[in-house]
């Protein structure tokens, strides 16, 4: 798991604090911004197309740790995708979002995965595959099983959501956070020699981050 997170202590207890960078990737109009908006503001509204990148943060006070999520919400149009490596550099987690009512966006998510696999070692990043827009069930083009099966073979977390009807949005973010924390624990008890610190030494080796609570 990524070494760039420096555990700190929150003021009220000795719980560790973590900051994670999460990047939302996927075709245009699959609901990346809406998922972020639903998760952070618990609301759904008509959002302008994302241009460049939008940023959200969310702080979670969990029993075991304080987690600050830094959410990078990217533009979906393919034209913009050559700058995307700038967006997901040093990300700890990625949500690959597709629209269950649009098969093409599912294929596109697979391409995103290949891109990420080129840039990250498997234990460096937690990836979740998210089939959004379950409220459009009548127009579904990607079955739940297809999504599930693909995620299973690639070792991704998987969940179907609806930002519009608030279905499993919180759950998918929480699943990712728990996986990040699980890996954090695993790493502490069994330090891996293949962490990012050995890969990126010199660039981000000196970087320390801590959570402002």
């Amino acid at each position: 798991m990524a070494q760039t997170v420096t555990p700190g202590t929150s003021p009220e207890s000795s719980r560790p604090s973590y900051m994670y960078k999460m990047v939302l990737l996927g075709s245009m109009s699959v609901g990346k911004s809406s998922l972020a908006y639903r998760y952070v503001k618990n609301d759904f509204r008509e959002l302008l197309p994302t241009v460049g990148c939008s940023f959200f943060t969310q702080t979670l006070n969990l029993d075991e740790a304080t987690v600050k999520l830094e959410i990078w919400d990217t533009a979906g149009q393919e034209k913009y995708q050559s700058v995307c490596h700038l967006y997901y550099r040093d990300a700890h987690t990625a949500l690959l979002v597709y629209d269950i009512a649009n098969k093409q966006t599912f294929s596109r998510a697979k391409i995103w995965l290949e891109e990420l696999e080129k840039r990250f070692l498997p234990d460096e990043i937690v990836i979740a595959l998210v089939g959004n827009k379950t409220d459009l069930g009548a127009e579904r083009e990607v079955t739940t099983e297809e999504g599930e099966e693909f995620a299973r073979t690639k070792g991704l977390l998987f969940m179907e959501t609806s930002a519009k009807s608030n279905y499993q949005v919180n759950d998918v973010f929480m699943a990712v956070v728990h996986e990040l924390l699980r890996r954090e624990k695993e790493k502490a008890s069994n330090p891996s020699p293949y962490g990012r610190s050995t890969v990126d030494l010199g660039v981000s080796g000196a970087r320390t981050r801590c959570c402002r609570t």
């Binding site: 302008l48 700058v83 040093d90 981000s204």
Partner: peptide, 21 residues
């Protein structure tokens, strides 16, 4: 703040849309 901040990606939209949003 580190490399991410230095990339100044938060200015991307300002430049592209001339501060419209």
């Amino acid at each position: 703040l580190g490399e991410d901040a230095l990339q100044m990606l938060f200015c991307h939209r300002w430049i592209l849309l001339c501060f419209k949003r």
